[in-house]
Design a protein around this nucleic acid. Structure first.
Length: 423
RNA sequence: GGUGGGAUGGGUGAGUGGCUGAAACCAACAGUUUGCUAAACUGUCGUACGGGUAACUGUACCGCGAGUUCGAAUCUCGCUCCCACCGCCA
């Protein structure tokens, strides 16, 4: 969530920034600031009364010690009225506090200055297009048919055992998954990210920490018996490692990575977009997460973009990088780059990675801070990105690399798969 | 699943109603001493929010939430989590 101090000191800047998301937060912000003023006023009064009560109590204690019971009784009576006032003010202050927090939660992050206003995916800025789009002398087969033909993925079996969106990978399909995961993790390791194997279920506090809760609980699978949520991305457990953490100095750069399956209910999606591997309830992903000093987050974002870019180049997939417009960005993001690979048979660009900086928006909720040189606590910046999500990579790879003789495996992956062709 | 024990500052841990925002030790930081390292000595050392240009000051916080009391880390109740042992088990 946004810092209240930012609203106090730069209200106009926040309003202008948020207008890039095509929303007008003026009323909300005015309401927040009005309540904030009221809150501070009442809070001061409350604290004064508490101070008075504390003093009285001390006096009463002294009286008892000096055997001055009469005066103690008099003073006791004095506290009654103050205590009543205190209770009323306390309730008022608490109510204002929670109203302010709720309203702050309702405001999305302010887009970075370089982010342009826009409404639709069409408004996103094309940053780079890389690699030749494949052409075929035959009719290209979509990946769901290729997967069937070569017995790589069994969607029907998944339906039988679990339901739609939970495929089985088998044979070379399964090996290819394992190869991709190992390849992505090795690359992240080379880039200095520490590997974690994280829990796949998280508690409510973690869901709140990274912002899935309370609003988006419909997107997560939930185990009510134990009050645990299945993770929608490794971002949740990895980032929550640093929930309620105060780093001791400003000399830090934390780089984490982890492979996990991801579980998403995807309530409300339907149609041809969900065909085959395009949208699943369970899929595999390697995530990279960074926690940085504010002055380093721009550099970190660039490094992450170039890391993902290199992965796609090594995998020989044609891709493009888009900088999302204000209207297409996630709620918590200040700037997002989407990576899309071209999938030949579907003639479609498929999103395979989303790399974002959140600035202090996430860390404010997480209470993730560091001590600066002046010994003051400041919020860290967080960033994360997929590097990469597997299913659509697999879809593009199958479709783009198909030949009448079989599907070619990119040379970088062959040491991992142990085979060069699927046939 | 059963039975016990516990939750205090970065760590260990003292603290059963006011002198406790909290002893002591360790760690950390700054300094003195020292040929270097080490040791020793001295000092500093929780977080959040409010007020103040600032020095500073007020309030809250001893797992969480309620209660008793003029006053709660300390007493009462509820909850959560952790640990140990037993059972079961990859």
């Amino acid at each position: 969530m946004l810092e209240i101090q930012r609203l106090r000191s730069d209200k106009e800047g926040v309003i202008i920034g948020l207008s890039k998301r095509n929303i007008d937060p003026t009323k909300t912000i005015n309401d927040i600031l009005e309540m904030d003023g009221l809150w501070r006023e009442n809070k001061t009064q409350l604290e004064n009364i508490s101070a008075e009560l504390n003093q009285l109590s001390r006096k009463i204690g002294d009286c008892f010690k000096n055997n001055n019971h009469d005066e103690a009784l008099l003073l006791k009576n004095e506290t009654q009225e103050l205590k009543a006032k205190e209770a009323v003010l306390k309730a008022h202050v608490d109510e204002l506090d929670s109203k302010i927090t709720t309203m702050l939660y309702s405001l999305p992050n302010v887009p970075h200055v370089d982010v342009i206003q826009g409404r639709l995916p069409d408004d996103n800025q094309l940053i780079e297009s890389q690699g030749e789009l494949p052409t075929f002398s035959f009719t290209a087969i979509p990946h769901w048919d290729l997967a069937k033909k070569y017995q790589l993925i069994d969607f029907e079996l998944g339906v039988k055992v679990t339901g739609a969106g939970f495929p089985f990978y088998r044979g070379k399909g399964a090996k290819l998954q394992r190869a991709l995961i190992a390849f992505f993790l090795d690359e992240a390791d080379k880039a200095g990210y520490e590997e974690f194997i994280a829990p796949l279920l998280v508690n409510e506090a973690s869901g709140i920490g990274t912002g899935q809760l309370p609003d988006k609980e419909g997107q997560m699978y939930y185990a009510p018996e134990d009050e645990l949520y299945l993770i929608p991305t490794a971002e949740v457990p990895l980032t929550n490692i640093y929930r309620d953490v105060l780093l001791p100095n400003e000399d830090f750069s934390i780089k984490l990575t982890g492979y996990t399956p991801c579980f998403r209910r995807e309530a409300g999606s339907y149609g041809k977009d969900v065909r085959g591997l395009n949208r699943l309830h369970q899929f595999d992903k390697v995530e990279i997460v960074r926690i940085e000093h504010p002055k380093n987050s721009e550099k970190a974002l660039n490094e992450m973009v170039s890391h993902v870019r290199n992965l796609l180049i090594k995998l020989e997939l044609p891709f493009r990088i888009l900088r999302l417009c204000g209207g297409d960005m996630g709620f918590a993001s200040a700037m997002t780059f989407d990576f899309e690979v071209y999938s030949a048979a579907q003639d479609k660009w498929l999103e395979v990675s989303s790399v974002s900086r959140f600035d202090t928006y996430q860390s404010n909720r997480l209470k993730l801070r560091f001590k600066d040189a002046d010994k003051k606590s400041k919020l860290c910046h967080t960033l994360n990105g997929s590097a990469l999500a597997l299913p659509r990579i697999l879809a593009a790879m199958l479709e783009n690399n198909q030949t009448p003789e079989g599907i070619k495996i990119p040379s970088i992956l062959q040491p991992y798969t142990g085979f060069a062709v699927i046939n």
